[in-house]
Amino acid sequence: MKVLMVNGSSHQGCTFTALSEIGKVLEKEGIEWEIFNIGGGPLRDCIGCGGCKSQDCACVFNDDIANEFLKKAREADGYIFGSPVYFAHPSGRIISLLDRAFVAGKKIFLHKPAACIASARRGGTTATFDVLNKYLTICQMPVVSSSYWNMVHGNTPSEVLEDEEGMQTMRNLGTNMAWLLKCIELAKKNGINPPENEIGVRTNFIR
């Protein structure tokens, strides 16, 4: 079993530090993990072109890291999406990536457990947390929670490590993710598979 974590910052700083704390717990639980760093290179927004409909869970634009992420996402059993707070919302970089990934590769994520975390110097964490969680709930992903809302505070990685409750929250999140992954694995071995949902009905508000 493997958890793919996304660092939605251009830097390996505070968000990376929080994800790494989760990774330590996953490793103790026998769960493989990897942090995918978005980095600082150019990253397109989704332009709603529909070109991904002719692709196999890939964006039609192949000039940035979006398809690299989708390839890694195929092999993962769970996900954690982390973002720093920029102007009281997630980084534009992680929004651009997830918009494209969840349109082009929706079936990759269906029914797989996931969580989101936010990192801030001071404010904007709850709004960031709320925005990121909407990707999970539209894709029928079991949302993994912790003992508090999944957020850490600090202006530097060393300050984040001093956020004792934040670090505790990250560790509990890792424990809960490992538990849920093991429950899902046990269910599969006993013939309990993800549900088949109704599809096809789309109601527009203006006819």
Rank of each mutant, 00 (worst) to 15 (best):
T128A: 13
E21I: 00
F87C: 08
F102R: 13
K72V: 04
C52S: 01
K24W: 08
V144D: 09
I95K: 15
R74V: 11
K188M: 07
V160S: 09
G13R: 11
E32P: 03
N150W: 05
E198S: 09
V85D: 10
F36P: 15
E21N: 06
S91I: 10
I47T: 08
N62G: 04
C116N: 06
Y135E: 10
F205S: 06
N7A: 01
E162I: 06
F69D: 12
K24S: 12
D63W: 00
Q12F: 03
C49I: 00
E162T: 08
A178I: 12
E196R: 10
I117P: 03
H89P: 06
G23I: 03
A114F: 13
I47L: 10
E32A: 05
P194H: 11
D99P: 02
G30H: 05
E164R: 03
N67W: 13
R93V: 01
F36S: 12
D64Q: 04
F81K: 02
G51W: 02
H111D: 14
E21P: 01
T175E: 10
V143F: 13
R122H: 04
E32H: 08
L98S: 09
A115Y: 08
F129V: 12
K134R: 15
T203N: 05
K182V: 12
I192L: 07
F81I: 15
I94V: 11
L186R: 14
A18Y: 07
Y148Q: 11
T125S: 09
A76S: 07
G51R: 00
H89K: 10
G105T: 02
E185V: 09
S158R: 11
S158H: 11
S119Q: 03
L173R: 02
W33I: 00
D163Y: 09
L161P: 08
L19Q: 07
A127R: 12
E196L: 05
R202K: 15
L181I: 15
K182A: 13
P84A: 04
Y148G: 06
K71T: 12
L173Y: 13
I80C: 10
K134P: 02
E27F: 05
E21S: 02
V3S: 11
D99I: 01
F61N: 03
G48K: 03
L181W: 13
L173V: 08
Q168L: 01
D99R: 02
C57K: 04
G78V: 09
N190V: 01
S147P: 01
E162W: 04
V6I: 12
Q12T: 06
N37A: 06
G48P: 01
D63P: 00
S20W: 09
M5R: 04
K24L: 11
M151C: 07
R74S: 11
H111S: 09
N37K: 06
I65R: 08
Q140R: 13
K106R: 06
D99S: 01
D99N: 07
L4G: 04
L110N: 06
I22L: 05
Q140C: 07
C46P: 03
F109R: 05
K2F: 10
N204G: 11
